[in-house]
C-alpha cells in the first residue's frame, strides 16, 4: 500500500512545497501546488471530552521525477514540518 507512506518535503517559509522525496525517488514540484484542508470524521473516532473540528492540512502537488521526466500528482497530508504523509495518488 502506497498511501500512508512518509514523504520528506522541502517547503518555502510560507509552507509551499518545492521538492519531495518518496520511496527513494526525488520529485521537483511543478505547476501550482494547491493547498486544501480535509476533515477527519469526529463522529466515528469515538472521542469524548471537548471535540474539535479535526482538520487536516493538505497539499495537492505535481512532482516531476528529474531522471525519468515522469509526473506524479499526489495529495500530501501535512504532519510534521518536514515529514508529510502520502494521502492519495492521482494520475
Amino acid at each position: 500500500m502506497e498511501t500512508g507512506d512518509l514523504v520528506a518535503v522541502w517547503a518555502t517559509e510560507t509552507g509551499v512545497p518545492q521538492k519531495f522525496e518518496w520511496r527513494g525517488h526525488s520529485y521537483v514540484v511543478c505547476g501550482h501546488p494547491v493547498p486544501w484542508v480535509d476533515r477527519l470524521p469526529w463522529w466515528s473516532l469515538g472521542q469524548e471530552g471537548p471535540l474539535n473540528a479535526l482538520e487536516q492540512q493538505m497539499w495537492r502537488v505535481s512532482g516531476v521525477n528529474p531522471d525519468t521526466g515522469h509526473v506524479t500528482c499526489v495529495d500530501l497530508a501535512v504532519e510534521e514540518p518536514s515529514w508529510w504523509r502520502l494521502a492519495s495518488i492521482h494520475e
Partner: peptide
C-alpha cells in the same frame, strides 16, 4: 446521521 451524507468538507 453523520456519515450517511457528505458533511461539510472541513471547518474553514
Amino acid at each position: 446521521p453523520m456519515g450517511s451524507f457528505d458533511p461539510q468538507p472541513n471547518a474553514q
